Simulated assay, not measured.
Amino acid sequence: MSRARTRTKEFLAGILHKHPKSPKLPKLPEKPLAESSLPLRIGSNITIQDHNTFLNNYGSEGYKFYFELNTDNKTGSVYIIGMASPVHEDVVHLLQKFFEVPNGEVIFSPPIKVSGQPFHFKPKGGGVKIAPDVAVYPDTAFVPRPVASAIVPRPPSDEKGNPHARIVCEVSVGQTVCHLKKRCLTWMRQQYVRAVISIKILDPRLGIREPRTGYFYRIMTAKLYRQGMQGIEKQEWDFGNVIKNSRNPKGNPAPCNAPNLPGFQINIPIGEVFWDPPFPIPPGYAPAIPDAITVHNFTIDLYRIQQVALKAEM
């Protein structure tokens, strides 16, 4: 949702609006949307090619799109399932900062690249494009572009031929839990995606605030999906300033109430970003981590995520 729009894309978007012979594309809403109206279908019987063209031209409009493939595996319906908001964008920005910590002070060509919404091809999705809220992947100085890789079969890439994202984050405010889970599990169908973080932030409880800070009470949940020996492994956290299903937030305080609490931290080994094994994968394979990186884990402090989300909507 934070992808910038180039002048070329703006020009092409104008052409697609004006010319009746343009491909059949989804139609964006003319009026502002309320999150309660999501998911909203904006196109049906759209081909995969036209869906991808639509994303190229309108992917920066502040919406998160979902393509539901029809049984013919050629066409489908396009939905808006989420949209930019201060809460969404502030949480995404903080997640990006957490993943940049192991780079130290390196700004230009860091060993770990952190990006917002780079296009990938949906795993086992027949060429449909999707983009995560946050993508974490290795610099080509440490993991070559797939086209230059000696690994057979060739590793996957993003749309531009760069190494595929190894860690993905999806943040949901208006997006439903069902769509969020489906999206995360879709990413996990690609073996090179080693971990997916899911953040769900529910609506604030209007009219009831924390006495000390004045923040609205808000339920927040997080999930970590990882590739494991026996399939997908999952961890879950309830980290809002109110316990899920609590009817008395003031008398039943939430335990996620301070930074650096071990029970409210998501830890992912740094090596997952540099996962690039030969084929077949040898027993005990461990990715090589650049010498410049001296920490062992990415650490996402969920209390910090909570506070940023609460502050964004007071």
Results as ranks from 00 to 15, higher is better:
residue 209 R to I: 05
residue 209 R to Q: 13
residue 210 E to S: 02
residue 210 E to F: 03
residue 211 P to W: 04
residue 212 R to M: 05
residue 212 R to P: 00
residue 213 T to P: 05
residue 213 T to A: 13
residue 213 T to S: 14
residue 213 T to L: 11
residue 214 G to N: 09
residue 215 Y to I: 01
residue 215 Y to P: 03
residue 216 F to A: 10
residue 216 F to T: 08
residue 216 F to S: 11
residue 217 Y to S: 11
residue 217 Y to F: 15
residue 219 I to W: 05
residue 220 M to G: 06
residue 220 M to N: 02
residue 221 T to S: 12
residue 222 A to M: 12
residue 222 A to C: 15
residue 223 K to H: 00
residue 223 K to Y: 01
residue 226 R to Y: 03
residue 226 R to K: 11
residue 227 Q to I: 10
residue 227 Q to S: 12
residue 228 G to E: 11
residue 229 M to G: 04
residue 231 G to M: 04
residue 232 I to H: 00
residue 233 E to K: 02
residue 233 E to M: 03
residue 233 E to P: 03
residue 233 E to F: 02
residue 234 K to G: 06
residue 235 Q to P: 00
residue 237 W to C: 03
residue 237 W to N: 00
residue 238 D to L: 12
residue 238 D to M: 10
residue 238 D to Q: 14
residue 239 F to T: 10
residue 239 F to W: 10
residue 240 G to T: 04
residue 241 N to K: 03
residue 241 N to P: 07
residue 242 V to N: 03
residue 242 V to T: 12
residue 242 V to I: 14
residue 243 I to E: 13
residue 243 I to A: 06
residue 244 K to F: 05
residue 245 N to H: 11
residue 246 S to Y: 02
residue 246 S to P: 04
residue 246 S to E: 01
residue 246 S to R: 02
residue 246 S to L: 01
residue 247 R to E: 13
residue 247 R to H: 14
residue 247 R to C: 10
residue 247 R to W: 09
residue 247 R to S: 14
residue 247 R to N: 13
residue 247 R to I: 13
residue 248 N to Y: 06
residue 248 N to R: 09
residue 249 P to V: 04
residue 250 K to S: 15
residue 251 G to M: 06
residue 251 G to R: 10
residue 251 G to C: 07
residue 252 N to H: 14
residue 254 A to N: 04
residue 254 A to H: 06
residue 254 A to M: 05
residue 255 P to S: 06
residue 255 P to G: 10
residue 256 C to T: 09
residue 257 N to A: 15
residue 258 A to Y: 05
residue 259 P to F: 03
residue 259 P to M: 01
residue 259 P to K: 01
residue 259 P to G: 01
residue 260 N to S: 12
residue 260 N to F: 06
residue 260 N to T: 08
residue 261 L to H: 05
residue 262 P to S: 09
residue 262 P to I: 04
residue 263 G to F: 06
residue 263 G to V: 03
residue 264 F to R: 15
residue 265 Q to G: 13
residue 266 I to G: 00
residue 266 I to A: 07
residue 267 N to P: 00
residue 267 N to I: 00
residue 267 N to G: 00
residue 268 I to R: 00
residue 269 P to C: 01
residue 270 I to D: 03
residue 270 I to N: 07
residue 271 G to M: 05
residue 272 E to H: 15
residue 272 E to N: 15
residue 272 E to S: 15
residue 273 V to S: 10
residue 273 V to A: 12
residue 274 F to K: 09
residue 275 W to T: 09
residue 276 D to P: 01
residue 277 P to S: 08
residue 278 P to N: 06
residue 278 P to H: 08
residue 279 F to W: 14
residue 281 I to T: 13
residue 281 I to V: 15
residue 282 P to F: 10
residue 283 P to M: 03
residue 283 P to Q: 00
residue 283 P to K: 01
residue 283 P to Y: 04
residue 283 P to R: 00
residue 283 P to N: 11
residue 285 Y to N: 08
residue 285 Y to H: 14
residue 285 Y to M: 11
residue 285 Y to D: 14
residue 285 Y to C: 11
residue 287 P to F: 09
residue 287 P to C: 12
residue 288 A to Y: 09
residue 289 I to F: 10
